[in-house]
């Protein structure tokens, strides 16, 4: 079985002027297997965010290849990347990014609006969203609006939203960054549960305490991975 994510010799260069070019990623290669729970760590300026954007198909590498679920997505256009994000990736953001005027249920439904493959009836979609909310323990909060929910609850809505299209990959960017420690533990536990059910999780964080929950830590520095597996201390 091929890895879920296979990054080969990725480079990301900013700036056209050869004198002032910045190599955010410099010949970076890595692979993440199906079913892994990996944390990406690195200080600011390390290329960590660029890497996350490329893994999340929000950005394209300057050179190198990115195979996601067996398909090379490094050369896709914006519309194709949008479809890949919709189908293959569930995003969890630091600041939740829920639409304030929509109920929890409607927020969870958002990715289905842009699903080009599945055409479930409105009723079936709502059932599926309700199931997703139940799976994150919010069965009693479906019709609440984000401002009626605690931070931890909002992040759980966001996780339910990430799950709704059943993507193989959950990409979590500092998922506990805006949460108190109790809520952080809950969210990490929830990610563990998802991991155990077979979802591949890639989590970007700069908190070693959080990163330790992952089965594997990928450390990024100067646009490259270093000492894949045991670098948590070094990034302190």
């Amino acid at each position: 079985m091929n890895p879920l994510i296979e990054l080969q010799r990725l480079t990301k260069v900013y700036g056209d002027d050869p004198e002032a070019q910045v190599f955010a990623l410099n010949d970076l290669s890595a692979a993440i297997q199906r079913g892994e729970f990996a944390a990406i760590m690195g200080p600011s300026g390390s290329g960590k965010s660029t890497l996350m954007n490329i893994i999340g198909c929000l950005d394209r590498p300057t050179s190198g290849s990115y195979l996601l679920d067996g398909r090379d997505v490094s050369g896709l256009d914006k519309n194709e990347l949008a479809d890949v994000r919709n189908q293959k990736i569930g995003f969890v953001f630091q600041s939740f990014n829920l639409l304030p005027r929509l109920s929890a249920l409607d927020n969870v439904l958002l990715p289905m609006l842009y699903d080009i493959n599945v055409d479930l009836s409105a009723e079936e979609q709502r059932t599926r969203a309700a199931e997703a909310l139940t799976s994150v323990g919010l069965e009693n909060r479906m019709h609440h609006h984000p401002n009626q929910l605690s931070g931890g609850q909002q992040q759980r809505v966001a996780i339910a939203r990430a799950l709704i299209n059943r993507p193989p990959l959950i990409l979590a960017d500092e998922p506990t960054g805006n949460l108190d420690s109790k809520s952080s533990v809950e969210i990490i536990d929830l990610l563990h549960t998802l991991h155990e059910s077979g979802v591949t999780i890639v989590m970007v964080t700069h908190e070693p305490g959080i990163a330790q929950h992952a089965g594997r830590i990928i450390c990024v520095r100067d646009g490259q991975t270093v000492d894949d597996g045991h670098c948590a201390e070094k990034t302190l």
Binding site: K78, N79, A82, D83, P111, L113, Y114, R161
Partner: peptide
């Protein structure tokens, strides 16, 4: 803008 960014991240094509 932020809402547009979110919708795009969740799979909205630029055309959408």
């Amino acid at each position: 803008t932020r809402e547009i960014g979110l919708r795009m991240a969740l799979g909205a094509r630029p055309n959408d």
